[in-house]
Design a protein around this nucleic acid. Structure first.
Length: 317
DNA sequence: ACCCAGGCATTGG
DNA sequence: CCAATGCATGGG
């Protein structure tokens, strides 16, 4: 970003504070998942920095988070920029960032479990301080799950970009354009047949509209879901046609940051984790993986995150 | 042409 | 309860 940009117009306000994550914590390791696909325009990741345009009520606030500490003494510097308004929204922004960046999770009990686990033990040292990054909303994680069903992820994320550019609010700050993830209401008012122009199957297009309607109408409610135990969240989400067990468990993991969420039928689990880390010859079955993962309770999801981090390290050097 | 890619709903044994 | 099938598109 250029520092020659004109000063922000006086309709903008600016607010700064510090977030102190529970150590150990690494912003780079935790946020890297957001940068896995090129042209990501919602979650912006650079070394030691994370940026996102947050939805706060009816407004939008650009959050810029910079890692100014170390893994053992983490300190996140946060700058908020947005339309002038009372400071009431700052606690809400801080809460969202703490959720997205998973600052408050205590990794110690997980590391204690991992020390005595043959598979996990070697994965911890190279990923020390990696936590569980999350979408701000269950809605967003469900949309991404639907886009990711049965297609390669580059394709899914290219559709995400088109949806965000079409339906997401945007804001230009210091000459740079930032996009918020679309609100449920935007999908709710769309015609499912029209949505197919985004290279979606009829079923997926209709599911996106249903998701928008469910959250817009309150059939599904973010705060309510947040209070429910894992299995009840899954039960609630699979009531939506087009959301199966896999998508619901992905939402638990990526939307609610539940550390025990375990998408046992995930291709990445039954194939890549099974073959790459567990030494299985063939593609395992979902039942195999669920049985195996019992030893990782109550951190089955976090264990998966460390598995994926390892596989990513191997494939990208 | 064919198969696979971080599934799901539907149908038929 | 398990197996087979169509769905949309893109890359190998």
């Amino acid at each position: 970003m250029s520092n020659l940009s004109p000063p922000a117009p006086n309709t903008m306000s600016n607010y700064q504070f510090t977030l102190v994550p529970t150590p150990p914590y690494s912003l780079d390791l935790t946020a890297i998942r957001f940068a896995r696909f090129k042209d990501e325009i919602v979650d912006r990741v650079q070394p030691k920095q994370y940026q996102r345009l947050l939805s706060v009520g009816e407004r939008f606030v650009l959050a810029t988070v910079t890692d100014g500490g170390s893994i053992t003494k983490p300190q996140l510097h946060v700058e908020l920029q947005g339309s002038r308004k009372s400071n009431l929204e700052h606690p809400e922004c801080a809460a969202q960032l703490r959720h997205i960046l998973c600052t408050d999770l205590d990794l110690k009990p997980f590391y204690r479990l991992a020390r005595t686990d043959e598979v996990l033990a070697p994965l911890i040292a190279p990923a020390r301080g990696l936590k569980l990054p999350a979408s701000p909303t269950v809605f967003e994680s469900l949309v991404m799950a639907v886009l990711s069903q049965q297609v390669n992820l580059n394709f899914a994320y290219s559709i995400k970009r088109e949806l965000v550019e079409t339906f997401g609010e945007r804001q230009t700050i210091a000459g740079e354009t930032y996009y918020a993830f679309p609100r449920p209401e935007r999908f709710a008012e769309e015609n499912a047949e029209d949505m197919r122009r985004f290279r979606l199957s009829g079923a997926k297009a209709a599911t996106l509209v249903r998701l928008g309607q469910a959250f817009a109408a309150g059939t599904l409610h973010e705060e309510e879901l947040r209070r429910l135990p894992d299995e009840e969240v899954v039960e609630r989400l699979i009531q939506i046609k087009g959301i199966g067990r896999w998508s619901a468990e992905i939402a638990l993991l990526r939307g609610l940051a539940r550390v025990d969420a375990f998408p046992g039928g995930d291709l990445g689990v039954v194939k890549y984790v099974a073959q790459g880390l567990l030494g299985k010859e063939e593609k395992a079955t979902e039942a195999d993986m669920r049985a195996f993962a019992e030893r990782w309770r109550p951190y089955r999801g976090l264990a998966l995150v460390y598995c994926y981090a390892e596989l990513l390290r191997r494939s990208s050097g």
